[in-house]
Simulated assay, not measured.
Amino acid sequence: MARISTIKNENAIPREDREQLSTCLFCDEKISKGGCWAGSKCIGVCKKCSQYLIDLFIDTLDDTDESFKKSSVETKMKYIEQMGVKRIVKKEEDSKKQEKYSYIKKLNLKYYAEVGIIDFFECTMTIVEAINKLSGVDKYNEEVLNGCENDVKEFIYSISREYPHTIRFFAIPDLNYGTFRLGCVAKIQNNGSTYILCGNRSYFEGIDEPGYNLTVKEVY
């Protein structure tokens, strides 16, 4: 479930699914804002027709819950209000989770591993070098790279209780598309531990030399 305005330009969603999500289930009008969800079918609902979702909720309870069906209007209202509060709280919590590490997610740095002490960064790029070299690539623009650097600082602090003193970016070949993806390396002062973040879990197999004993975990 999501807001249409947040996913309507999401290229990861197939075009036909995006069109279904942008068409109101009830009135068939094209919409750019509203609610949507994807299951076996992709469904969107506009603001004007959103009241019908309440009707559907009530009809479902009337048909599946005998005690609800026999309840007074006041009791039904109280139940619906309680359910509404629970769902609002859940949606707020989900929204906060989505906002956390949003730039790490934009660069798809889904996995990380602690790789011990590494002091050589010759083939990596500082944030300034990355911005200059990738200025023509929209998904690696200055805002995203700066935001990712800040996200990485907060993430490393959350797992080590120390902000990294060195953060560098590096290119990882994407053999499926003949291009490159960005990875990130971050180093802390305490015991010199170094962390690598990237979007391809199999990348860590290439650096799992004897003695490293890598444990790959998920950032999100």
Rank of each mutant, 00 (worst) to 15 (best):
L25H: 14
T179Y: 04
L134I: 03
F180K: 12
Y111Q: 07
V73N: 06
I4W: 04
S160Q: 12
Y111G: 04
L25A: 11
D208V: 00
S158P: 10
G44K: 06
V89Y: 13
E142M: 08
S135V: 15
I58F: 07
G206C: 00
V128D: 12
R87C: 08
D94N: 08
E99G: 02
E122Y: 15
S135Q: 13
E154R: 12
R201W: 06
I7G: 05
F121Q: 05
F169A: 06
I4K: 10
L145Y: 01
F120Q: 14
E19S: 11
K97D: 07
G44Y: 03
K96L: 07
F57K: 14
I117E: 14
S50W: 09
I156S: 02
G34D: 07
V152Q: 02
D208L: 02
Y203S: 03
N190S: 15
P14V: 10
F170H: 05
K110Y: 10
I58T: 12
T124P: 04
L61G: 07
Q98T: 05
D138T: 13
K8P: 05
I159V: 08
K76V: 05
K110N: 08
V144M: 04
V144P: 06
G136M: 13
N150W: 02
I196D: 00
I4D: 07
A12G: 09
I159N: 04
F170K: 03
E74G: 08
I117R: 15
E122V: 13
I188P: 01
K110V: 11
S160N: 05
K100D: 06
D138K: 10
P14F: 06
D63L: 13
K76W: 08
S158L: 13
R15W: 08
Q98H: 02
V185C: 09
K76L: 07
Y195L: 04
L21S: 05
N132Q: 11
K100C: 03
N200F: 08
S50D: 09
G116S: 10
K187N: 05
Q51C: 13
L107H: 01
G183W: 00
E205V: 01
C27H: 09
I4S: 08
A12Y: 14
F180C: 11
T126P: 10
